[in-house]
Design a protein around this nucleic acid. Structure first.
Length: 950
RNA sequence: GCGCCAGUAGCUCAGUUGGCUAGAGCACACCCCUGAUAAGGGUGAGGUCGAAGGUUCGAUUCCUUUCUGGCGCACCA
């Protein structure tokens, strides 16, 4: 035996691969994206799957405003799992990304950022339609800019979609589709015009949305007013008391100018009210507020006559203090005892609550205030032509003179103001367009609400299940849908006004405008005359047109659609118009869309087609921070997608997405993504190890025959089981289960067990030894299948590995791309859960692995005896029944020890100390065959043969 | 205020129709390997299942209340 051990390193088959350990995703992925784009990857995949059954999947449009945030990332990546999962499973799954482009947030932003200072002043001087077009041009530019930005970011997330032909709600053909839907809804009798109170800016003569309001403190005169009952005795009866004079209902308000429009007093039915003498006057006040009222008005003598519930007051009548009318006391649940008297002045034309109360009680929706803030001719003479702010003191003075004013004082409160002019806004009723949810449809007499509830119950499936209750609850309680907005940036509601103020909006007239819009876009509404817009309209053939209609007398009206109506028409404007199939198999959005896109797509579709536009509603929760709190810029806990991509890469972000339980809130933190990165590296390194042992290996078509009791059979069996699990998980949209199955396969089956056990034969067997070749064949199969399974989740990494695999066997190593067709084929065969022409692994394998666990524990405790390296150990297992005998060939590798002996008698596991036995200089094993060879080296039989010595 | 949902080891999650000492992975500790090496392997510690009541022989699992958080809706006359 020589002094120094021979170096047999060069005689080994050591791992070798170009597949790097470090993924370098942040740099590599943009190149992948560019390659996909230049080679037309989306189109070629569509072509490759052209004949396959279609899976209809429709994208909900994000709002084209700002960069994408982590919520978009979650949503788009989940959608991509579906798209790629379907393609990998052999379906044809076209996917058109879309954007919601119209609406207030963009207009608001343009008004703030573009039309400021001098530009804003100049804008104000323009005529209405010129001004609208100026705003619309800027809005369109903004929407286009953000569509471009978001598309770029979405591509960077490695999502697969028809980015060459996206849809946008502002595209002419999309707009035309929306109008066609609207025409059908009108035809079905669902559209009507009605008064509704809205925030109104007098300064700008426009309706304002919540986003355009700023709440500022303001002082207003508050007044306590007595409304005299018309029937004293009835009031007495309500309280079960005798009354000797006319009682009054005392109300309180901070907007005296709304008193002309008072049409009711609201009381809470279960609140207690008092009939009380206050300084001689008999009035009704909520008992809980009596002390405060007394203090406020400074009453000196207080005498409670009787008390009773508000319910008893309902139906009583009172006389308006200065208008010639009698109005009722009504019940309302929202009445509180926080301020005032517990009797609420109700003007249905001047408040949201009041409006609802008015409608519920059949009151007129009366609004004597005009757009310029002045009273109209229906107001008392002394108010006509005065503004509401001039009206306040006039009303108070009138009340004082007629003796109805009990008390007045200035009251400071937070009040909504116009964000631009900083002037206070008022509530004012205006005519708005509605889609009625309780109106019978011409088609079958059902209402939208009935139809919607029926599909929720019968034909839609929900993932997760609770979406069912949520959507049903919302449908049960939703009011009619107000679809009109008084803005510029949107699709006009194509209604025309006759000189007498009546309105033309018939299915035929809408369809005629749709033709114009399809050709020239919705700008046409602002730039063309009614005659041009209605060029294809023939009133004589329109059964709904009024007699003797002359287009020349019509004027355009300028309401636009609620953007939700546009987004809610996408199933028609995209799926049906582009012939992609209808309905969509799934809609996948955040849980906020039960109120939004889910519901507002469903209603038009039910009205137009009679069915919902989707079969399954898949919802995900919201991303919250690591403490479960909402992410927001102001809290400073928001994560930026750009940062995540830069720090971790898209594949790691996608790997993280696939790992979360997406129903319910999703906690997210950089640390979580970093952890996902760790587990990604595990998968990557496993692939790398496999690839590095396939250098120069060319698979021989089919796998070799494999013994069921061999390690290879077990690994192959696990591979197939994993494949079936992953495919089933994708079918159930349970990406997390797929993620876990893949990870466990890589981490346990391969890295911890199979690869560790296979090292010896891979490195030390002769290059062409059948045992080594067999294991390589199985590993080759593992890489192929893993690539196919990983592709929907980690498209970049899967393709990178696929390329490396091709390179290892020298085949198509020059091809820039991946042989997608082969990968897709593989996905298809995998989905069938096939096991190739090899026999299944032996049924005793689970037991063998349990034994392995026991052996490992025994080896651990043997460390105390100084046997620290498993290759210094041998294992004796009692096997009287000969159970382990068939596995004998692989047991030593499986346990990582030098030698395993099966004993015909005895019991248990014994670890033997082999440190005194010679160690093979090549394989480092203390195999029983190790001895000095002809070259002077100390080798085992196998190694001697591999090196070619005896 | 109303509706829906969630609350299990430091973190991400499993826990079938209530039933054996509540399970994984990561992180952590200790050890091995140095021929997957800015890798790989082994062993181990760690939880009164948000809280309080109740039903039951028995509850993480069913009921009630409550706390915390999320989404949606309403409200401030």
């Amino acid at each position: 035996m020589p002094e120094t051990a021979r170096d047999y390193r060069s005689t080994l088959n050591l791992p070798k691969t170009a597949f790097p350990m470090k993924a370098n995703l942040a740099q590599a992925e943009p190149i992948t994206v560019a390659n996909w784009e230049s080679e037309g990857r989306y189109d070629s995949l569509m072509k490759a799957t052209a004949g396959a059954p279609s899976f209809v999947f429709h994208d909900g449009p994000p709002y084209a405003n700002g960069a994408i945030h982590v919520g978009h990332m979650l949503n788009k990546v989940l959608k991509d799992f579906i798209v790629r999962g379907q393609i990998a499973a052999g379906s044809h799954c076209p996917y058109v990304p879309g954007w919601d482009c119209h609406g207030l947030p963009i207009e608001h932003k343009v008004m703030v950022e573009v039309f400021k200072d001098a530009k804003a002043e100049k804008l104000a001087t323009l005529s209405d339609s010129v001004r609208r077009m100026a705003i619309r041009r800027e809005c369109k530019a903004s929407a286009e800019k953000f569509m471009g930005l978001q598309a770029k970011q979405m591509k960077r997330l490695l999502t697969l979609a028809d980015y060459e032909h996206p849809y946008a709600t502002m595209q002419p053909e999309y707009e035309a589709g929306t109008l066609e839907n609207f025409a059908t809804l009108v035809e079905q009798g669902l559209v009507f015009r009605q008064l509704k109170p809205i925030h109104w800016s007098i300064a700008n003569r426009t309706a304002l949305a919540e986003a355009e309001l700023e709440y500022e403190d303001r002082e207003d005169p508050s007044v306590f007013v007595d409304f005299e009952a018309t029937d004293a005795a009835a009031v007495g009866n309500a309280f079960g008391a005798e009354v000797e004079c006319t009682p009054s209902f005392m109300i309180w308000t901070t907007t005296p100018w709304t008193l002309p429009a008072n049409l009711a007093i609201a009381v809470h039915p279960r609140l207690e009210y008092s009939l009380v003498h206050l300084d001689g006057a008999l009035c009704v006040v909520a008992s809980a507020l009596l002390q405060r009222v007394v203090a406020a008005i400074g009453a000196e003598s207080v005498k409670v006559i009787a008390v009773g519930p508000g319910a008893n007051l309902v139906g009583l009548k009172y006389r308006h203090p200065f208008m010639d009318r009698e109005s009722p006391v009504v019940a309302a649940e929202y009445v509180t005892t926080e301020d005032g008297t517990g009797l609420v002045h109700t003007a249905p034309g001047h408040g949201e609550d009041d409006y609802r109360t008015g409608r519920a009680n059949g009151l007129e929706i009366y609004c004597p205030v005009q757009g310029d803030g002045t009273f109209d001719d229906t107001a008392p003479e002394w108010l006509r032509g005065k503004t509401v702010w001039e009206g306040n003191p006039l009303v108070i003075e009138s009340l004082r003179q007629s003796g109805h004013l009990v008390h007045t004082a200035m009251f400071s409160h937070s009040y909504p103001h116009d964000w631009r002019s900083h002037t206070p806004v008022i509530f004012r009723t205006t005519e708005q367009w509605f889609i009625g949810v309780d109106r019978p449809m011409r088609r079958d007499g059902r209402t939208l609400r009935q139809a919607a509830l029926e599909s929720v119950e019968k034909s839609i499936s929900f993932v997760p299940q609770w979406g069912h209750n949520r959507l049903r609850g919302m449908l049960e309680s939703r009011p009619d849908w107000c679809i009109s907005r008084q803005r510029s940036w949107g699709l006009p509601i194509p209604s025309f006004a006759f000189p007498d103020g009546s309105v033309l909006l018939t299915p035929a007239s809408i369809r005629a405008v749709a033709v114009a819009v399809r050709a020239r876009g919705s700008d046409a509404w602002f730039t063309e005359e009614p005659a041009e817009l209605l060029a294809t309209y023939d009133a004589s053939k329109d059964p709904d047109a009024p007699e003797g209609l002359t287009v020349a007398t019509l004027t355009k009206m300028y309401d636009i659609f609620d953007v939700w109506f546009e987004a809610g028409s996408s199933w028609h404007s995209v799926l049906r118009q582009r012939q992609l199939g209808f309905p969509s198999e799934v809609y996948l959005e955040g849980s906020d869309q039960h109120r939004g896109w889910f519901q507002l797509s469903m209603l038009p579709a039910l009205g137009v087609t009679g069915r919902a536009p989707f079969n399954t509603l898949l919802t995900h929760g919201f991303i919250v921070d690591k403490d479960g709190r909402k992410m927001s810029k102001s809290l400073g806990n928001a994560l930026e997608v750009e940062d995540l991509l830069k720090d971790f890469g898209a594949d790691v972000c996608r790997w993280w997405v696939s790992s979360v339980a997406y129903d319910g809130d999703i906690r997210m933190d950089k640390e979580h993504v970093r952890l996902a990165g760790e587990s990604y590296r595990k998968v990557r390194n496993t692939l790398r190890f496999l690839l590095s042992n396939l250098d120069g290996f060319t698979p021989a078509g089919e796998l070799p025959q494999i013994q069921p009791t061999s390690l290879d059979a077990w690994a192959l069996g696990e591979l197939h089981r994993t494949g079936s699990e992953v495919t089933a998980a994708f079918r159930a949209y349970d990406f997390r289960a797929a993620h876990l199955a893949i990870f466990n396969f890589c981490n346990d089956t391969l890295s911890s067990i199979y690869c560790a056990a296979a090292k010896d034969r891979l490195y030390c067997d002769a290059k062409n030894a059948p045992r080594r070749r067999c294991t390589q064949a199985v590993m080759h199969e593992c890489v192929r299948r893993l690539c196919a399974l990983l592709w929907p989740i980690l498209p970049h990494t899967a393709e990178e590995a696929w390329r490396a695999l091709a390179a290892s066997s020298g085949e198509s190593a020059t091809a820039a791309g991946v042989d997608m067709a082969a990968m897709l084929e593989l996905g298809k065969s995998g989905s069938a859960g096939s096991s190739p022409n090899n026999s299944a692994p032996d049924a005793r394998w689970p037991a063998v692995l349990l034994t392995r666990a026991s052996v490992l524990r025994a080896l651990e405790s043997a460390k105390a005896r100084g046997i620290e390296n498993p290759l210094d150990a041998g294992v004796r297992i009692a096997d009287p029944q000969g159970l382990w005998q068939p596995f004998a060939a692989d047991l030593a590798d499986l346990f990582g020890v030098s030698r395993v002996e099966l004993l015909a008698s005895g019991e248990g596991i014994e670890v033997t100390d082999l440190r005194s036995e010679p160690r093979c200089e090549r394989s480092w094993r203390r195999d029983a065959s190790v001895r000095t060879r002809s070259d002077g080296g100390v080798l085992s039989d196998r190694d001697a043969a591999a090196v070619g010595v005896v």
